[in-house]
């Protein structure tokens, strides 16, 4: 009973409080940076590498070779990806060249143990990138659920160079997130998992992926 009243009590206290009219939010701060495509790429690269991520430059024609190279260098025994995305479909076409293909096409409850134990790496597409902070944007969906970019020790993500924005504010505006409507979950990822909780000394791969690998096309 008390808890049911809590909402009204709190709101009533706030509503009967003294009023204060603050200045509208300042708009004199540019939320975009005057960067051309090359500048954006340069910053994106630099920031991600500073955050201990690997960045590979490729093209839409040869990115599979890059991916193959990454898989063999890292000695990946298997690769988790969705064949339902355009990029995933390309991997599937030449799956004989890649490590064992893993895919989960059912709710997590059935594949949680397998995901936590036994996946070497996961590949996902992205919803673009942010140059200023070296960030990839993920809009996880039914094909590429959110946990595949979190649980496996290596996350390989493909970013299209034309989809790199200068700032977070820029991405949000240009991609018109408000109008599109926000999905269940959006993730901004700016490197492998890390912590500085012990003596402010950086250590990687605390709970999320130990390695973040970006393929630029």
């Amino acid at each position: 009973m008390k808890i049911n009243n809590a909402r009204n009590n709190i709101l009533n206290r706030l509503k009967t409080s003294l009023k204060s009219e603050s200045e509208p939010v300042a708009h004199d701060v540019p939320d975009s940076l005057d960067w051309g495509v090359d500048d954006r790429l340069l910053h994106f690269n630099k920031q991600l590498q500073a955050a201990n991520a690997e960045v590979h430059d490729a093209t839409k024609d040869n990115w599979l070779i890059t991916l193959k190279h990454i898989c063999s260098t890292k000695r990946l025994k298997n690769l988790l990806f969705s064949p339902a995305t355009p990029w995933g479909a390309q991997i599937l076409e030449r799956s004989y060249e890649f490590p064992t293909f893993k895919h989960f096409d059912y709710p997590i409850d059935e594949w949680k143990p397998a995901l936590f134990d036994g996946i070497d790496a996961a590949f996902t597409s992205t919803h673009g990138g942010i140059a200023e902070t070296g960030t990839i944007i993920l809009w996880p969906d039914t094909h590429e659920p959110r946990l595949i970019s979190l649980v496996p020790p290596v996350h390989i993500a493909l970013v299209e160079k034309t989809e790199i924005y200068s700032t977070f504010a820029d991405a949000l505006k240009t991609q018109n997130w408000i109008k599109t409507g926000l999905p269940t979950n959006i993730l901004l990822i700016s490197g492998p998992s890390k912590s500085a909780d012990i003596e402010q000394t950086l250590t990687y791969g605390v709970h999320g992926p130990k390695e973040l690998v970006i393929i630029l096309v």
């Binding site: 709710p107 269940t184 959006i186 993730l187 901004l188 990822i189 700016s190």
Partner: peptide, 24 residues
């Protein structure tokens, strides 16, 4: 807080798992 330009993860949650989604 830490002098980072951004943290490793920025997580925006707008709903529980939807019927066609596999996790969350």
């Amino acid at each position: 807080a830490t002098g980072q330009s951004i943290t490793t993860y920025f997580n925006m949650i707008s709903s529980p798992r939807k019927p066609d989604e596999k996790d969350g």
